[in-house]
């Protein structure tokens, strides 16, 4: 009975994860697959290769990567001192600051983007990677501070004091004590920032002003066109890098004590 229950659950979990990817995969590599054929009559990689080698896809891939990397970097640089101060400094207003940071994560991106659209146009930031990255920081930065806050809450700063007593310089303390202890948490924070930025459509659309093409905006305009193989192929190009990034950081994910439930809805 127990093994039956387990098998059913494993199948359900696996299907939940793999079904959409499988559907996208079959459509992306199918040719002339019309209703009611159960399986594609012909398989081809040409649709996928055409989507991958299209100049627009290249531009979108580059823009998405540069923006997501910039967002991750900024989230770490700005979020690190903030989270350390919140958790290890003596602040009376800690709860209030966390509450304030919570607000931008739940306000719908449509509302945030509409509000910033005109201002960014005026500042000349609309349609630029920097402008889009700045706006992505609105939902990303609070998450980075929450995640890093959790990391610092479990961090014991007296290790640094011990190294100082033993005569280590500030740089050596950071490099040899702080960084190794915090590394899993830092990697996970960067990963979260990358994921949110990579998947962001509304903010990119409203601030990119249609000029800045990223993978989500390209994909979004492809869907109404109707060609299912093209849409599926582009969707695979969009998600594949995410799984590469997750695979690369998997060992830190397991090592860090970051709670999965805190990972985002967006």
């Amino acid at each position: 009975m127990s093994w039956l229950r387990r098998t059913v659950i494993w199948l359900a979990l696996g299907a939940g994860l793999l079904a959409p990817i499988a559907v996208l995969g079959v459509y992306a590599f199918s040719q002339r697959w019309f209703y009611p054929a159960l399986l594609p009559p012909e398989w081809t990689a040409s649709t996928f290769v055409r989507q991958l080698t299209r100049p627009e896809t290249g531009t979108a891939l580059l823009n998405s990567s540069l923006i997501a990397l910039l967002v991750s970097l900024l989230a770490l640089l700005v979020g690190y001192p903030a989270a350390r101060a919140l958790e290890l400094g003596q602040l009376p207003a800690k709860g209030l600051i966390y509450a304030l940071l919570f607000v931008p994560t739940v306000v719908p991106t449509v509302a945030t983007g509409i509000g910033l659209n005109i201002l960014f146009l005026r500042l000349g930031l609309a349609g630029t990677r920097l402008g889009v990255a700045l706006v992505h920081l609105v939902p990303v930065l609070p998450y980075a501070v929450f995640t890093l806050g959790g990391v610092f809450a479990a961090y014991d700063p007296t290790y640094e004091a011990q190294a100082r007593v033993l005569g280590a310089s500030r740089w050596m303390i950071w490099r040899r004590v702080t960084l190794p202890l915090l590394l899993p948490g830092l990697v996970v924070t960067a990963l979260f920032a990358f994921l949110i930025s990579w998947s962001q459509y509304v903010l990119t659309f409203l601030i990119g002003g249609g000029q800045l093409v990223t993978l989500p905006t390209l994909l979004f305009t492809t869907v109404p066109g109707g060609n299912q193989a093209t849409t599926a192929a582009l969707a695979l190009v969009f998600v594949a890098p995410l799984f590469v990034v997750i695979a690369l950081t998997a060992r830190y994910l397991a090592g860090s004590r970051v709670r999965g439930g805190e990972l985002l809805l967006q």
Partner: peptide, 25 residues
């Protein structure tokens, strides 16, 4: 740990792609 990994991977899946997958399904 594997159960938690699968759930986390599901979470990382962008809503946009999820919607397209369902559209085709």
């Amino acid at each position: 740990r594997r159960v938690l990994t699968i759930l986390n991977l599901n979470l990382a899946f962008p809503h946009l792609v999820w919607a397209i997958g369902l559209l085709l399904l």
